[in-house]
Simulated scan of single mutants.
Amino acid sequence: MIDQTATKRPIADQMYDVLLHQFMSGQRSAGQSLNIGALSRELDVSQTPLREALARLEHTGLVEREALRGYRVAPMMTRLEIQQLLEARLLLEPHLAEQAAARATPEFLAQLQETVDAFEESAEQADFETEGFDLYWRSDDRFHMLIANQAGNSFLAMAYAALGGQIQRFRLFSKFGRTGAKHAAPEHKAIYAAIAAGDGPGAAEAMSAHVTGATQRLLG
């Protein structure tokens, strides 16, 4: 399973990508046990880089470690967890968007536009193809992280990053047919337009609508 064209990359990095791809493709489902010995044999690598990759995935929220039992893929979010995540995001992300609008720079706007374009490109395939879902995942994550970092408060950015693992879990286990990417793409555009115009309240309102809409689409 090691990519021979990327042998200069640490094996742990390659295993991180392999496992993440397996999660996104549905090859390993929510709650499934991740036995390190079995993974080592299956992927033909030693256990040390696998342990490192799993430890990194644990920090994203996509993998959990249970005492005396090892690792497993994080379980599906409960309805209550989804509602609580929505509450947390609504407290944080509209404010980040408003502050990012006040501090927007040409470089930041160019980077944000790239994520908007990539997300729109993914919208048609995200619910049906692993590659489309991968682009959807990464562009969405970068869009929100760019805004958090541009808001100008490192503590709030750290708070978003800490929440980000659970947002990744939310994205991943929405799975194919339920991402709502077609609906989210114009929402990203609306957030971008408000930020680019320096309209802080408008950016906050657009972000609130987006976060709420994403949750309603998953629950619906």
Score class of each variant (00 low, 15 high):
4 Q>I: 13
4 Q>M: 14
6 A>R: 15
10 P>S: 08
14 Q>M: 13
15 M>A: 10
18 V>S: 05
27 Q>H: 07
29 S>P: 01
30 A>F: 11
30 A>N: 10
31 G>V: 07
38 A>F: 01
43 L>H: 08
43 L>D: 06
46 S>E: 06
48 T>S: 12
49 P>A: 07
55 A>S: 13
55 A>T: 11
58 E>T: 14
58 E>V: 06
65 R>Y: 08
66 E>H: 00
67 A>M: 13
69 R>H: 09
69 R>N: 02
70 G>K: 00
73 V>S: 02
77 M>P: 00
81 E>T: 04
82 I>A: 04
84 Q>W: 06
86 L>A: 09
97 A>H: 12
99 Q>T: 03
104 A>F: 07
105 T>G: 03
109 L>C: 03
110 A>M: 01
113 Q>G: 08
114 E>R: 10
121 E>I: 03
131 E>A: 12
135 L>R: 15
138 R>F: 08
143 F>Y: 15
146 L>C: 07
147 I>R: 01
152 G>F: 14
153 N>T: 10
153 N>K: 09
155 F>A: 14
158 M>Q: 13
159 A>C: 00
161 A>D: 07
162 A>T: 10
165 G>Q: 06
177 G>D: 07
179 T>M: 08
180 G>V: 04
185 A>W: 10
187 E>T: 07
191 I>Q: 04
191 I>N: 03
192 Y>G: 02
194 A>Q: 05
207 M>P: 02
208 S>I: 05
212 T>F: 04
215 T>F: 09
